[in-house]
């Protein structure tokens, strides 16, 4: 693996290998000494053009646990605010000896551009590009789901997600998490249904490998997990995507009543940060079936696995 840009690039074998490595990484994180010498001498640059708390900290923790040097670079207070281009920033980072760049950018395709424009030879991890993809989030969601379902049913870890039913609810239009999740879960054999108002489904969703529905109550009794997406009001500009927050909550919010429509074993997931009271109620977010905090912890293990697979082997020629 040279770059991790999109969940679509991962074959079933790649994805399962990454999840298996993440499982071992998670085991090391339960120990007293969490640090491993594996990436000693490698430099990872966190290049964040967009605000982020958990993804940035999670990548930073993952790289540090593997003994890589981490340089965090956020657009605020850098030369980017003086108008430096992505290309010049990339050249600067390479000159500083970066082995991998973790990139968060508001433009869809920024990670692909950085990886394939021939500006530099560093490995690129996409940590969210516009409304396009966020592959490590999808991997940590799949990791969390696989772990929980395997605890309940046992069986071959490579096949636990086959046939698992997952509802992805909410602002699919602006969500890079939704696209990455749909692609990855499909690769792993799960059955995904998107639930959203028609205004919050992207054009061309009919070509995605999943079903769609507008009726959350009808979907919930039949799923193993419901993944609630954040309503991204900062991307909604003038609004007009739904009449009011109250109406959105009434039709698509996960509240206590809807929580009780779920089967007993079903999980409640959210990539964070949450708008409590809008897409998810406090009762749902804090219920025992919520994996929201666990997802954050698993994120470190999954990102350790991604960094390991990208950086631990011999240098690509």
């Amino acid at each position: 693996m040279r770059h991790l840009l999109s969940a679509a690039d991962l074959s079933r074998e790649d994805a399962l290998e990454l999840l298996d490595v993440a499982e071992e990484m998670a085991a090391t994180q339960a120990r007293e000494i969490k640090k491993l010498p594996t990436l000693r001498g490698r430099t990872v640059v966190n290049l964040f053009f967009e605000d982020s708390t958990r993804t940035r900290i999670s990548f930073e923790a993952a790289a540090k646990r593997l003994s890589a040097d981490v340089i965090t670079f956020s657009a605020k207070g850098s030369s980017v605010s003086k108008g430096e281009s992505l290309k010049d920033t990339a050249l600067t980072l390479q000159a500083m000896g970066a082995d991998a760049v973790v990139l968060r950018h508001s433009a869809s395709g920024a990670a692909h551009r950085l990886a394939h424009a021939g500006w530099s030879g560093v490995g690129v991890l996409n940590a969210g590009d516009g409304t396009h993809e966020h592959p490590t989030q999808a991997l940590l969601d799949a990791f969390t789901l696989r772990r929980r379902l395997a605890e309940r049913a046992g069986g071959d870890p490579a096949r636990v997600l086959e046939g698992a039913r997952v509802a992805v609810v909410g602002d699919v239009l602006h969500s890079r998490v939704a696209r990455s999740n749909v692609l990855l879960l499909e690769t792993l054999g799960a059955d995904v249904v998107l639930v959203a108002p028609p205004t919050l489904l992207p054009v061309g969703v009919g070509t995605w490998p999943c079903r769609t529905s507008w009726d959350l109550d009808a979907v919930l009794p039949d799923v193993d997990a419901v993944m609630v997406l954040r309503v991204q009001r900062e991307r909604m500009g003038g609004g007009g995507f739904f009449p009011s927050a109250q109406e959105y909550t009434r039709r698509f919010g996960l509240d206590g009543r809807r929580l009780r429509l779920l089967p007993d074993h079903a999980l409640v997931m959210h990539p964070g940060p949450m708008n409590r009271g809008l897409e998810i109620s406090a009762e749902a977010a804090d219920s025992p079936r919520s994996t929201i905090v666990e997802q954050v912890a698993n994120g470190v293990a999954v990102r350790m696995a991604a960094l390991y697979l990208l950086l631990a082997g011999e240098d690509a020629a």
Binding site: P37, T38, G313
Partner: peptide, 20 residues
């Protein structure tokens, strides 16, 4: 499993991890 402590990681293609 000793994979992550090996000194030849950078000389070989990346290895899967064993169980500890």
């Amino acid at each position: 499993d000793v994979t992550m402590h090996r000194d030849d990681l950078r000389r070989n293609p990346v290895r899967a991890l064993g169980r500890t």
